[in-house]
């Protein structure tokens, strides 16, 4: 039987293998050393405190530190313990790292990986610990991936580290303890290639990260009523597999974008406009979006849940499209 690992253990294995394979790989972040059960477990013991560097609570400085290390032959990984912390470091992410390669006229590559842990709403964490801010980074031109399985968590972590550009990897809070098959050898999952997670022929649901599982559950539910849903996982949001997206829409003719970021200027808005521009004549019905509400994530459970894209709303949207 194939080996199974949790998502977080798959990230950990990817980090260990990347550190072992390339001495220029270093990692900075808060509380990344001396931990026993996390994505960074055992790294400092194996590779030393000069490569696995605990940082003060100074997100801008350690993000900029990584940029400088990358310009000096390093291949740094920056960990943000909470996704909302990227906002603290926004100048260094957006004005500096994202813009430098072009502003330098291509003089140097900038191989930095931003590992953004516990992304999305984890339940009861309130407004400053529940964001899923990938559209901000995508808007700034930072390559962005959201693995939805332990296998992709490992493969995309390795791919992100090997990529010669800044890449943000969002590890959703809802997936970290989930198990799945993970090959033992190092491998890179390519950026820019979407995956059909469940084949169907009447409706495409685009879903990523934590929502892939929920979309598949909804697809199974409606299958009992003879509705055939295809679940397409972009895996990599920037670059986006536009050809793969067009292919699934051409096949089904109907699209629901199920996305765990805000509605306005969110990922679903981008997918919808791409499909409207490129696949208009394949569409048999208007595009629907099931996203977060454009509100700060509230604390209390009923209203937190109500603000997020859930199974019930997806199921209703799917049924409405075929009604």
């Amino acid at each position: 039987m194939a080996r199974e690992l949790t998502y977080i253990a798959a990230l950990n294995e990817a980090l260990h293998q990347s550190f072992a394979a390339d001495p220029s790989v270093i990692m900075v972040g808060e509380n990344i050393r001396g931990v026993k059960r996390s994505e960074t477990a055992g790294l400092d013991g194996a590779f030393g405190a000069d490569r696995v560097i605990d940082m003060p609570i100074s997100e801008p400085a350690f993000t900029g530190f990584a940029t400088g290390a990358a310009l000096s032959g390093g291949r740094p990984i920056v960990e943000f313990q909470v996704s909302s912390l990227i906002f603290v470091a926004f100048d260094q992410l957006v004005n500096q790292a994202a813009k430098l390669p072009l502003m330098l006229g291509g003089q140097r590559h900038l191989p930095v990986t931003y590992l953004i842990m516990g992304a999305g709403a984890g339940g009861g964490r309130a407004g400053q610990h529940s964001d899923n801010p990938y559209p901000f980074l995508m808007h700034a031109g930072i390559k962005t991936v959201i693995p939805s399985t332990p296998k992709d968590a490992k493969g995309l972590m390795i791919a992100a580290i090997r990529e010669d550009d800044p890449v943000a990897l969002f590890a959703p809070a809802g997936l970290l303890r989930r198990e799945g098959e993970v090959p033992e050898e190092p491998y890179a999952t390519p950026l820019g290639e979407g995956v059909v997670r469940r084949a169907g022929d009447q409706i495409t649901v685009v879903a990523s990260g934590n929502l892939v599982r929920k979309a598949i559950e909804v697809a199974e539910t409606v299958a009992a009523d003879g509705i055939s849903v295809e679940v397409w996982d972009p895996v990599s949001l920037l670059p986006l597999d536009k050809a793969g997206l067009a292919e699934t829409v051409a096949k089904t003719g109907r699209l629901v974008v199920f996305d765990d970021s805000n509605r306005t200027c969110g990922f679903a808005a981008e997918v919808s406009s791409l499909v409207a521009e490129r696949c208009f004549h394949d569409l048999k019905a208007p595009i629907k979006r099931i996203t977060r509400a454009d509100v700060t994530t509230p604390f209390s459970n009923p209203i937190e849940y109500a603000s997020l894209p859930g199974r019930e709303r997806l199921e209703a949207a799917v049924r409405a499209l075929l009604a």
């Binding site: 000069d50 530190f65 400088g68 290390a69 310009l71 100048d91 004005n95």
Partner: peptide
């Protein structure tokens, strides 16, 4: 490493370079 349009923003990049020298 370049001039920089944002006040103070270049400094942490110098630190990253310094660390790689040390490493």
């Amino acid at each position: 490493f370049g001039a920089n349009g944002i006040v103070g923003a270049g400094a942490p990049m110098g630190l990253g370079a310094a660390h790689m020298f040390k490493l």
